[in-house]
C-alpha cells in the first residue's frame, strides 16, 4: 500500500518537526491506518482532511500516543519527533504529551476554575517555581489563546460556565500553557458556531508563529483558510500530501479531486 508517495513539493525554509514512516494502526483485528509516511513541518499549520472514518483522527492521536489509552489499539512503524522515535520503549508518553499538546473535538474544560484549568499542565509538569511565575504563565497562555480580556476578571469562576467558543479557547490556552512544541487539534471547531469558529481559526493562524500545528478538519474551507500543508486521507491511507494551494487547485490524485469537488465523502 504505497499509493501516494510523499510529493517533493517546494519546501519552505521551515525544518521538519515530525517524521512518520510506515505507520500502521490496528483496532483489534481491524486495520485503521495503512502504511502512512508524512513529514510535518515546524511553524506550519498542517491540515488532515478526508471523509469520516478515513483514519485522520487516528493518525493525529499517534503523534502524542493518545492511542495508548485505548486498550485495543496497536501502532506499528515509527514516528520521529526531532529525530527521536516517540514509540521507543524508553519514551514516557506522559513526558511526550507535554511536548505535543492536544485540543479535542468537543471543548472539555475540567470542572474547575479557569485559572486551575490553565495552570493544571504547568503544575503537573513542574514547569514553574513560584506562584507569580505560574500566574505569569496562565496570563500568557490566556493572552495567546485570545481569551485574556474576556476572562481576566473572573479567573476563579468555573471553566464550564464559559460559552462554547470561549471553552474551546480555554482548552487551547490549557494546551499551550505547558509550552508544547507541537499542537494537535482534532476538529476543534466542529462543536462551535460560525463566530466562535472564526475566532478559533484566527487564533490557529497566530499560533503558527510559536508551534507546529496539526489540525484535523471536516471542513475543506477551513483547511484552505488556515493551513499551509494539507494531507488527504481515504480508507485508512494517505492519498496525497502537499501544499494546501496545490491540493485544492491542482490535486494529482483523482480521489482527492473527487473529494474536494464533493463526489465522495
Amino acid at each position: 500500500m504505497y499509493d501516494a508517495p510523499t510529493p517533493e513539493t517546494r519546501l519552505t525554509q521551515n525544518t521538519t518537526k515530525i517524521t512518520a514512516r510506515g505507520v500502521q494502526v490496528y483496532y483489534g483485528d481491524k486495520q485503521a491506518l495503512k502504511d502512512v509516511n508524512v513529514d510535518i513541518l515546524d511553524n506550519t499549520v498542517t491540515a488532515f482532511i478526508g471523509p469520516s472514518g478515513c483514519g485522520k483522527s487516528t493518525f493525529l492521536r499517534c503523534f502524542n500516543r493518545m492511542n495508548d489509552t485505548v486498550a485495543s489499539a496497536r501502532v506499528q512503524g515509527e514516528i520521529l519527533l526531532d529525530g527521536e522515535n516517540i514509540y521507543d520503549k524508553r519514551v514516557d508518553p506522559v513526558q511526550l504529551r507535554a511536548k505535543v499538546g492536544m485540543v479535542f473535538q468537543k471543548p472539555n474544560p475540567f470542572p474547575k476554575s479557569i485559572y486551575d484549568n490553565v495552570s493544571y499542565g504547568p503544575k503537573i509538569h513542574g514547569l514553574t517555581r513560584s506562584k507569580t511565575e505560574l500566574d505569569q504563565v496562565v496570563e500568557e497562555s490566556l493572552r495567546k489563546a485570545a481569551l485574556w480580556n474576556e476572562v481576566k476578571d473572573r479567573l476563579n469562576e468555573a471553566g464550564t460556565g464559559l460559552s462554547g467558543g470561549q471553552q474551546q479557547r480555554l482548552c487551547i490556552a490549557r494546551a499551550i500553557a505547558t509550552s508544547p512544541e507541537v499542537l494537535l487539534m482534532d476538529e476543534p471547531c466542529s462543536a462551535l458556531d460560525p463566530i466562535a469558529t472564526a475566532q478559533v481559526e484566527e487564533l490557529i493562524d497566530e499560533l503558527r508563529a510559536s508551534f507546529s500545528v496539526v489540525i484535523v478538519t471536516h471542513s475543506m474551507q477551513q483547511a484552505a483558510r488556515v493551513s499551509q500543508k494539507t494531507a488527504f486521507f481515504h480508507l485508512g491511507s494517505l492519498v496525497e500530501y502537499g501544499d494546501t494551494s496545490t491540493i485544492f487547485t491542482n490535486p494529482s490524485d483523482p480521489r482527492t479531486e473527487s473529494y474536494i469537488t464533493g463526489r465522495i465523502g
Partner: peptide, 8 residues
C-alpha cells in the same frame, strides 16, 4: 498573541 513564546 505575538508575545514571544518564552518557555518558563
Amino acid at each position: 498573541a505575538n508575545v514571544p513564546a518564552s518557555a518558563p
